[in-house]
Simulated assay, not measured.
Amino acid sequence: MGLTFASLIMTQQPAIFVGLMMRSYSFVTDVGLPDIWVMDPKVQFVDDIKPLQDTKLFRVRGVSGVDWAMPMYKGMIKARLADGTFQTCNVIGLDDATLIGGPPVMLEGRLEDLRRADSVIVDIDGARDKLARPSKDPAGKPVPLKVGDTLELNDRRAVVVGIAKTTRTFQSQPVVYTTYSRATLYAPRERKLLSFVLVKARPGQEVHALTRRIRETTGLAAYTQAEFEELTVNYFLKNTGIPINFGMSVTLGFIVGAAIAGQTFYNFTLENIRQFGVLKAMGAGNGTLLGMILLQATLVGMVGYGLGVGLTSLFGWSMRNTILAFKFPWQLLVFSGLGVTLICVFSALLSIRKVIKLEPAIVFKG
C-alpha cells in the first residue's frame, strides 16, 4: 500500500503538472501551420500581447526566404450574453484573405463562413459552458450556444457561424475566431493592434537561419513553434508557484511512501528474525539471505508500482471530459519507476543490515 500510494502520487501529480504546462502553449500548437512566430521583443509568453504597428507586417514580408507572412490578432474581449452577464473571451483575428491560423477541427459550419457579415466561430467547450444561454427553467441546465445564435463583443453584434474543437487554454477562457479586420473593430481602439505575424519559410529554406534573418532585419522577436512553446513554459516555471506546489506534493508522496514501505519491510524482517537465524544455522550464507530479501522487495515493488500506475491511468481516463489538465507521457512511467526503485532499495537495505549482522545463536535464545 505504501508503494502504491507513492507510485500514484509520483505519476498523478506530475501528469497534472505536464497537462497544465502543455495548456499554456496549446494555442501555438493548434495553429500549427506557420514555421515562425514574429512579435514584439518584450513578449514573455503567448498571452503577453504587446501589439505591433501594421507596417511591421510588410517589413517581415520583405525578408529574403519568407514564403508568406500573415497578420493575427489575439486579445481578451468581453462578450455580453443573452442574460446580460459578461464573459471574457479570447478573440482570435485571422487574415481576411487566407484565414490562416484558424481552428484545427470544425465540428459545425465551415471556416470560410467567417467571410460572412458579423460572423464568428466559437470553440465547443466555451459554447457548452461559459457562453451557454441560461435555461428558461430556473432549475434547468444552460443551453449550449449553437450556429445562428448571436453575441455582443464590445457592443458589436457577432453571429455564430461555426463550432470548432480546440485544445483548452491555460485560463480556459472561451475562444472566438473571426477575421482580422473584424477583430480590430471588436477590440478597444488602440494605435497598435497587430499581435503576431505568422511566417512560412520557402521550400528549402532553413527555418532557424530565416528566424535569425528576421530578427536582424526587422528588430522584432522571431521564434520557431518549438522555441515559442519553450519560451512560454519557461515563463510559467520561473514566475509562478506551480512547479513548487507540485514538486512538494511529489516529494511528500515519496517520503511518506518510503517511510511506510521501509517501516513495514523492516518490521517483517524483525518478526521473522528467528526464521532467518534458522536458515543461517543450517548453512545458508549471507548471499542467499540477501537474494531472498531482494526478491521480496522486487515483487512488492512491481505490484505496488503496477497498482499505482494503474490507478493513475484510471484517474486520467475518468477525468478526460472535464476541465482538469492531465497528460501522461511515457517519461512519467520511468520517473515513478525510479522513485519506487529507490524506495525499495531503501527498504531492503534496512532489512539487509539486520540480517547480515544476525547471529545464528538467536535460535537457541529464549
Rank of each mutant, 00 (worst) to 15 (best):
S7Q: 05
M10C: 15
T11P: 01
P14Y: 08
P14G: 13
A15I: 02
F17G: 11
L20D: 02
R23D: 04
S24I: 07
S24K: 09
T29C: 00
V38Y: 03
K42D: 15
D47T: 09
I49L: 02
P51Q: 13
P51D: 15
K56V: 13
R59E: 07
R61A: 06
V63G: 11
A69Y: 10
M70V: 12
M76D: 11
D83E: 06
C89H: 08
N90W: 08
G102M: 05
P103K: 08
P104V: 01
L114T: 09
R116M: 08
R128P: 06
R133Q: 13
R133A: 03
P142V: 05
P144M: 15
T150N: 04
T150I: 01
L151H: 00
T179V: 02
S181A: 03
A183Q: 11
V199K: 05
H208A: 15
E230G: 05
T232V: 12
V233R: 13
K238C: 00
I242K: 12
P243Y: 04
G253E: 07
V256D: 02
V256I: 15
V256A: 09
G257V: 07
N272P: 01
G277S: 11
M282S: 09
G287W: 00
G287P: 01
M292K: 12
T298E: 07
T298C: 11
M302L: 15
T312S: 11
G316E: 11
S318P: 08
G339Y: 13
T341F: 15
L342F: 14
C344K: 09
V345S: 02
R353V: 13
I362H: 00
